[in-house]
Write a protein that binds this DNA or RNA. Structure first.
Length: 505
RNA sequence: GGGCCCGUAGCUCAGCUGGUAGAGCAGUGCCCUUUUAAGGCAUUGGUCGAAGGUUCGAAUCCUUCCGGGCUCACCA
């Protein structure tokens, strides 16, 4: 913190320390006084605890005795049972736990003292033979051990673990030590992303990285974060989507590209929204949104199978069946289906308002017809879409970057994928007509002038790129955090993000 | 941002129709060579989120602020 080494500061730290920390510091000093290195730099060739468990837990007591299996491993102490001349210690390496058995008559005087100076939370390296205790637990009986690092602060309680939600998010490291479930969430998160990458790579997609700091924040309807570059003396926006850059790459004949990274949206925080969130966006030339849906379906089914081992998962007490094919329902049909409205009732403003009232969906009279329809969709349709469902053919007005349907220019070739009532993906046949694109941006600018600060800005540079010629493309964004929520049965996005955004404390 | 709920020992929690703070775990000391939420005996530890107010007296009642959870609004 300070490079001045002011004694005042040291005193303050000491004053703030409670006895538990003081005692642990004294123990560390005693360990040093005994001649042990207190922060040694390595403990090499150690075996993973999870691998030891995997390899040998099936062995019988007799077999272990015969084979004299020597083990060297290391980890953090999370439990200790002292019984006079013997001590049992549990250590973990993040994936698994193993029991270590110390016998005083096998240790020299210095190591006996060292054993007494260990605390829960400390790191040790041990070597010894494997055996099974009376109760059948795989255990290492120590013939030597090494002190590796000290925990000056005590870990949370062993039985209840760390329950305080705020502490679990702010001090995620403690959550990961104490709560195996939490650790598993991030294993599944990693696996999910790994499999998405593998499947895309197998389909000859190229992984790319496009700017996270952009002069115009485009590609989605959202308020951006603003930042400033000092040397260039210019304001930049943290990206709300990589979309317009990835499509510039399509102009550059990169036919299949994808990017997995963070987007930033300066909006409300909730159990389903973190200001920074992870999206997979991918674009493929020469296909349309229908083919994109087929590929999405195939890919997600495979990811679920790889990550979960089955296509049926349980989410918040309900079953979600990923088995293909997934239903495709048009935006308007879905509203009719769940509100009981007839087709002609969705045509005029009066009847749309009547439908909203009949379905007890609140709206602002200033809203456009489309916005009221969208509200009907979100309130009456979305919560019912539990098994994976594609909603297709959205109104033009809310889709400024997608291609019109040839047979109905008021609709676009767009789909959104809903699972467990959550929007998981959004994709469309990409608009590649630069004249139409400029016109759409102009429509958005009008929206912006009417007070919608989430409406899209004009991006001349993007239109210019398109004027050089853009092939037919379909593109899609998949919300990784929400997908992981599904796979881990979590109802809050904060449970699947290691360090979710919180107020400063 | 609105509504409801929460903040007490390192951790998990009691105590809250006002009388000045408790338990379990962790810690410390002693006993214990197959325990596993080990056990037994003893024991340390608290600006009761912060600041005001009411009161003879506030962890408890009131106000404001800080932090969190759920929810509504906005969004993915």
């Amino acid at each position: 913190m300070s490079d001045k080494n002011e004694p005042v500061e040291n005193e303050q730290i000491t004053e703030n320390e409670n006895d538990l920390i003081k005692i642990r510091k004294e123990k560390l000093q005693k360990i040093a006084d005994l001649g042990f290195e207190i922060y040694p730099s390595s403990y090499e060739q150690k075996e993973a605890i999870s691998e030891i468990a995997e390899l040998y837990s099936g062995y019988s007591e007799e077999k272990l005795k015969e084979e004299n299996i020597k083990i060297k491993t290391a980890g953090r102490i999370i439990g200790r049972r002292i019984m006079g001349k013997t001590t049992f210690i549990d250590i973990i390496d993040g994936l698994a736990k193993i029991q270590i058995y110390f016998q005083k008559n096998k240790l020299d005087e210095k190591h006996t003292e060292l054993l007494g100076l260990l605390d829960i939370g400390d790191f040790i390296g041990v070597s010894g033979e494997l055996f099974k205790t009376r109760t059948g637990e795989l255990t290492i009986v120590v013939d030597s051990f090494k002190f590796l690092s000290k925990a000056l602060r005590p870990l949370p309680e062993k039985f209840h673990g760390l329950q305080d939600v705020e502490a679990r998010y702010r001090q995620r490291y403690l959550d990961l030590i104490m709560n195996q479930k939490s650790r598993e969430v991030f294993e599944i998160r990693s696996k999910t992303i790994e499999w998405l990458r593998r499947l895309l790579n197998a389909r000859k997609f190229l992984e790319v990285e496009t700017p996270m700091m952009q002069p115009i924040a485009g590609g989605a309807a959202a308020r951006p974060f603003i930042t400033h570059h000092n040397t260039l003396d210019m304001d930049l926006y943290l990206r709300i989507a990589p979309e317009l850059y990835l499509k510039r790459l399509e102009v550059g004949c990169m036919e299949r590209v994808y990017e997995i990274n963070r987007n930033f949206r300066n909006e409300g925080i909730s159990t389903k929204h973190n200001p920074e969130f992870t999206m997979l966006e991918f674009y493929q030339a020469y296909i349309d949104y229908k083919e994109m849906m087929r590929q999405t379906e195939a890919m997600l089914v495979e990811v679920v199978e790889k990550v979960h081992g089955t296509t049926e998962i349980s989410y918040q007490g309900k079953q979600v069946n990923f088995k293909a094919p997934w239903p495709r329902i048009t935006f308007y049909d879905s509203i009719m289906q769940y509100t009981g409205a007839k087709k002609e009732e969705l045509q005029s403003r009066e009847s749309i308002i009547a439908i909203a009232k009949k379905n007890e969906v609140e709206f602002d009279p200033k809203w456009s017809d489309i916005k009221i329809l969208n509200e009907l969709f979100e309130k009456k349709v979305e919560p019912n879409l539990f098994n994976p469902t594609f909603i297709i053919d959205y109104p033009l007005e809310i889709s400024p970057l997608s291609k019109k349907k040839p047979e109905d220019p008021n609709l676009v070739e767009r789909f959104e994928l809903f699972i467990a009532g959550m929007e998981i993906a959004n994709g469309f046949s990409e608009l590649n007509d630069p004249v139409d694109q400029r016109h759409r941006f102009e429509m958005q600018i009008k929206e912006r002038e009417m007070g919608d600060d989430e409406a899209h800005q004009m991006d001349e540079d993007y239109v210019t790129a398109m004027e050089y010629g853009m092939p037919p493309i379909a593109g899609e964004g998949i919300g990784i955090d929400r997908l992981v929520m599904l796979f881990t049965d979590r109802d809050s996005i904060r449970e699947v993000i290691l360090f979710p955004q919180l107020r400063k404390n």
